[in-house]
Amino acid sequence: MVLFSSLYYVSCGHFCHRQRQYQYGTKSCPGCSNTKTYREVSCCDGWKGYTCDVPICDPPCNGGETCYGPDTCRCSNKTVEGLCYGYACFPPCQHGGECYGPNKCACRLGYAGDFCDVNPSDIIFVVDESGSIGNDDFRVTMEYLTNAVNRLPVRYDLLRIGLALFSDSARKSFNLDDHFTKEHITDAILNTYFGSGGTDIDGALGYTCEDMFQLTTGDRPNAQNILVLITDGRSSDANKPGLLKCNSKNVTIIGIGIGSNTDQDQLRSLVSKPEYYYDTTYDYLDTTMPKLLKTIKGKL
């Protein structure tokens, strides 16, 4: 949680390079694992962590100070006679919360999380599985999602996760109320098999907002609804009835376009705000992680 909340200060991380190779599961054998190799992980000087967003202080901070940047120590609370006063909460408690212990915040009603930065939210990842992607890049996306889940404050009463896949048509992998722990959610993601077909993005939006953001499938009336669309292509349907269904439910849409075959203007017309869309490639998909978490965090 500390790593996730450090995005409060670091907008895009300090990421240099990461490459990975996967061969994990097929439609005939979901969950079968043959290869899972990590290689060439590199952060810029002074940073560490999965997305290179955690500062390094050498020597370590002392006297109650917190590491806020490379070799930059300071108090997270006020100082008294040159020393840090009271306990340190990094980042400071949000939404009126009070720091009562090391990285421990007492939250006001309606907020939760280690730093009082979480409102109840329901998030559904909507992932392209069209034939142009292929199983290897699909596995890269699934691993990307598991890393995102591990950086989010998942809990049945705080943040719930669902997963939908789409090609010519959309299908459910799991609903918002199927899994409530990070371990169960990441296992379900990695066990999702790859399909194939065309690319009906608007149909996928309509399916998700109409059939998966439902009380009967775990959606909560007091929670914010967030849809994260990940695709490498352009929609086969120029009409937008699916988008209208999402807008009618006030669903926030975040978009990630991968590769050169995307219609960026089309995708930007789907997201809730221009800054909620970003493009990348499969080789550099990891570089969008800080942006995705920061965008989601801004909605929590």
Rank of each mutant, 00 (worst) to 15 (best):
86 G>P: 10
60 P>Q: 09
102 P>K: 11
125 F>L: 10
112 A>N: 12
61 C>F: 10
108 R>Q: 14
117 D>L: 08
116 C>W: 06
96 G>Q: 02
134 G>F: 07
73 C>Y: 07
138 F>Q: 02
142 M>C: 08
69 G>T: 01
143 E>Y: 14
133 I>D: 02
66 T>I: 11
155 R>T: 05
153 P>V: 03
106 A>P: 00
64 G>T: 06
152 L>W: 06
71 D>K: 13
68 Y>I: 14
87 Y>Q: 04
53 D>M: 06
109 L>H: 13
140 V>P: 00
72 T>A: 10
111 Y>W: 15
94 Q>D: 10
59 P>V: 03
69 G>K: 09
90 F>C: 05
70 P>H: 06
149 V>Q: 04
108 R>L: 14
149 V>Y: 08
121 S>W: 00
123 I>A: 05
110 G>N: 11
111 Y>K: 01
130 S>R: 02
140 V>H: 10
91 P>E: 09
126 V>S: 14
144 Y>I: 01
53 D>N: 15
129 E>H: 11
61 C>Y: 10
148 A>S: 11
72 T>F: 12
124 I>P: 02
89 C>S: 08
144 Y>V: 00
130 S>V: 06
91 P>T: 08
123 I>P: 11
83 L>C: 02
150 N>T: 00
88 A>C: 04
124 I>R: 04
70 P>C: 05
69 G>P: 07
124 I>Q: 03
68 Y>H: 15
66 T>N: 09
138 F>R: 03
85 Y>F: 13
105 C>Y: 06
105 C>N: 07
140 V>K: 15
144 Y>F: 15
154 V>D: 06
71 D>R: 11
126 V>T: 15
127 V>W: 05
108 R>H: 12
151 R>Q: 13
91 P>Q: 09
73 C>S: 05
67 C>Q: 07
103 N>F: 12
74 R>D: 14
132 S>A: 06
112 A>D: 15
115 F>S: 10
